[in-house]
Computed example of a mutant assay.
Amino acid sequence: MVDTDGLLSPADIRELAHALDLRPTKRRGQNFLVDPNTVRRLVRLAAIGPDDVALEVGPGLGSLTLGLVAEAAAVVAVEVDPPLAAALPLTAADRLPAAVARRLHVVEADGLRVGPADLPAEVAAPTVLAANLPYNVAVPLLLGLLERFPTVRRGLVMVQAEVADRLTSPPGGRIYGVPSVKLAWYAHARPAGAVPRPVFWPQPNVDSGLVAFERRAAPPGEPDLRADVFAAVDAAFAQRRKTLRTALASWAGSAAAAERLARAAGIDPGARGETLDVDAFTRLARQARLAGQGPVAGQDS
């Protein structure tokens, strides 16, 4: 039975998968949404408006895609799997009015590498990210997309519940860590609810959670400070139980240098990295740059 707003039912998902001879793989984190009510919920929480260009990474068989296309000015769906990428426009054309289906633009690319140059020239820059991210690469995907697509102002992503907790954890918490600080560099993030296992096919062995975010401005005049900030974050959490004086020694050049930088940034060198928010790490990186320390840049995840 066709859903009244064109969304895919569990039977539709299995029929599409059978037609594509698709067997979901853990390697690609393929767990497809099969519940139209959950799709409606996600579209509502993402607050997609008629002027938005939505970026979706990992659309799979199109469950969420169809809901996004119905609300946005355009949707750019980035899919790495060629058969899935080829099938997605056909699914939209089959289930949606032609004028609505034309809003969908499918890009066959790896979400970990896709950038603005890969998007169709006729489509405006994306303003919102809405995606059920592959759980095995969710953190580097999210951070990389926010770095490469500065026009994305807000978003809603579905990730493993444990990852959602880490991404939205405040300083001082047991699970506060590298993902928490690095996402905070780009955006103000908050938990946006849980998603039950039965709404997926196949059902995952982990719980799922939603993360909503709104982009924050980079430090005035210092957008290129990100690499230095991330390097400080990586160093601080590489030895989580150590004080900053010890944990940042290799980053700063020595324990004494780390202490001087911390004090110059208004931070207790006897504190641990888990107590620092992103603004504190930014002050540390700024002091290191002023001192000409030249710390080694860290990774994005």
Rank of each mutant, 00 (worst) to 15 (best):
L61T: 06
E79T: 01
V137M: 01
V106S: 02
N31Q: 13
V107N: 10
Y135C: 00
P59F: 01
A93Q: 03
V39N: 09
D118C: 05
N132F: 07
A121C: 07
V39T: 05
H105I: 09
G58W: 04
V114R: 08
A92C: 04
P83S: 05
A77E: 10
A138S: 09
A117H: 15
Y135M: 00
L88M: 01
T38C: 03
A99D: 11
L142P: 11
P50W: 13
A93N: 02
A98Q: 12
D35F: 06
A77P: 11
P83R: 06
N37F: 07
F32G: 04
L129P: 10
A74S: 15
A70G: 14
D51K: 08
D94E: 15
T91C: 06
L33V: 09
V57W: 09
T91V: 12
A47H: 07
P36C: 02
D81H: 01
R27M: 11
V43P: 02
P89H: 05
L88H: 04
A92R: 01
L90K: 02
D110R: 08
N132C: 03
A85N: 05
S63R: 06
A124H: 08
K26F: 06
L112E: 03
V76K: 13
T127Y: 03
P134M: 04
V69G: 09
V78H: 15
V34Y: 00
A99N: 14
A98E: 11
L84V: 08
V43C: 14
V114C: 10
A99S: 05
G67K: 11
P24Y: 15
G29E: 14
R28A: 04
A72H: 14
V139A: 02
E56Y: 12
V57F: 04
L84C: 03
R41F: 01
T91A: 01
L64P: 10
V123W: 12
A121T: 09
A125F: 08
A73K: 12
V139I: 06
A87V: 03
V123I: 06
L119V: 13
D118V: 05
L141P: 13
L64F: 15
N37L: 06
S63D: 04
H105L: 07
A72M: 14
S63L: 15
L104I: 08
L112A: 08
P82N: 04
T127R: 11
T127E: 13
R28G: 15
A131Y: 14
V80P: 08
L84P: 14
E122V: 02
T25E: 05
E71P: 06
R44H: 10
A47V: 02
V137P: 07
L42E: 15
V100L: 12
A73L: 10
L129K: 08
R41A: 05
P59G: 01
V100Q: 09
R103K: 12
A109S: 10
V107Y: 05
L142V: 07
G29P: 13
A54D: 11
A87Y: 00
S63W: 03
E122A: 10
N37K: 07
R113T: 15
V80L: 12
L133D: 12
V43Y: 02
N136V: 01
V139C: 04
V43K: 14
